[in-house]
Amino acid sequence: MTDVARLAGVSLGTVSNVLNTPNLVAAGTRERVERAIEELGFVRNRTARSLAMGRADTVGFVIVDLANSLFLDIARGAEEAFDTKHKRLLLANSDVDLAKQTGHIELFEETQVAGILLAPLDAPLEAAQQARGRGMPVVQVNWPGSGDACGVVADEELGGYLAAKHVIALGRRRLVFAGGPFSLSAVAARRRGVLRACEESRGVEIETIETPRITVRGGHSLGVMLAERPPHERPDALVCASDALAFGAMQPLLAAGVSVPEDLAVVGFDNNRMSTDSPVRITSVGQPGLEMGRVGAELLMEEIALGDRHEHRTIVLPPSLHERASTIGGRG
């Protein structure tokens, strides 16, 4: 900044105003400073600025899987909220890898961001707990909070309940819930919702099938297994714990001559791109990603502003059912 001030023939304070409050600087002076910045290739050091001011204007967001459009929606919602407070959002994708997740949290802490949003793996969150212990605000999105952290989640059990109630209302009586592993908290909650809906309905049979993962490949194996059953032993409705699983299952089923939804109604979960790109558009339970991101950002900004006076809490948001051709037929 000293070099810029010398070249432009202005004070350090004027350079600072051009960078931070340009409306306070006369147009001619501002243009002279901007030309000096461009000529010198000056780039402000945000880390040094944060140390000098005692606060950062950047926030880190560690996301478990950017291939899943739910997390893109969450990131968009968070960014919109941070924009209103003039904070910059830095994204990091852990790509379903605990070591990468830990590394990203440590990097954000080292660069002294104002706070961290974390959409985590279903695993012990030791790195996040350690960062919080050193005073770094961390808010969990798509994961419940705890005594020392806030969280924002969708009501996963209600989502499973809505999916099962939908196909039962259509007259389906032999249901399969598929997903896994059941040790994953989201899958377990969705399964509980399906079981509850079936228990409330007379004459409904429910079978649960645990899959190794909720991926397209896992869905394909599931579809092959169901297609190999005699027609009278197949379910008439399949509720999957993810759209990827539903997408993968439908391919071998359709190839085997199973008609969707006439023979088999199919419901997915997440309402991501796969649900609408499928040859038969998939009915899906959607989570409010934009709202989850917005609420998570607001909780984090509140914690940054209030410090120890902030009250940790978990916000639970309702999911919604998006009906499409895989259950209602036609052009749905």
Rank of each mutant, 00 (worst) to 15 (best):
N17G: 04
D65A: 11
R46A: 12
R313S: 09
E156V: 00
G330I: 05
I63K: 07
H232C: 09
I328R: 06
H322F: 06
G159Q: 01
I304D: 10
Q129I: 06
F42R: 08
I282D: 01
L121M: 15
E323A: 06
V4R: 01
L91N: 06
R49K: 12
Q140M: 14
C150H: 04
A188V: 01
A188K: 07
S284D: 07
P235N: 14
D270A: 11
G219V: 02
T14L: 14
P144M: 12
L321N: 00
R313F: 08
R44E: 14
P120D: 15
P231Q: 13
K100G: 01
L317F: 06
V59N: 10
S201M: 07
A189D: 12
A81N: 03
L175D: 02
L170S: 04
R324S: 01
S201L: 06
G218V: 08
L40F: 06
R30Y: 11
V194T: 08
D95M: 12
S94H: 05
F71W: 13
R132W: 08
V62W: 14
A249P: 00
A246Y: 00
E302G: 06
S50N: 14
A27G: 05
L51G: 07
R294V: 02
G60E: 15
C198A: 15
D236H: 04
V194F: 10
T111Q: 15
P319F: 05
L300N: 01
R191C: 09
T327P: 00
R331H: 13
R294I: 02
A169S: 12
A128G: 06
V113S: 05
A305Q: 10
R88C: 08
A188N: 11
P318K: 07
A36G: 08
G218C: 11
A5S: 05
T208S: 15
L66G: 07
D3I: 06
R173S: 12
D65H: 07
S201V: 04
G147Q: 09
V224F: 03
E199D: 15
N23P: 00
N271T: 05
R46L: 15
V260D: 03
G223E: 02
G145I: 06
Q130H: 10
A164I: 01
E302S: 12
L72C: 11
E302F: 01
R88T: 15
I315D: 02
P181G: 06
A149D: 02
G115P: 01
R134G: 07
G180V: 03
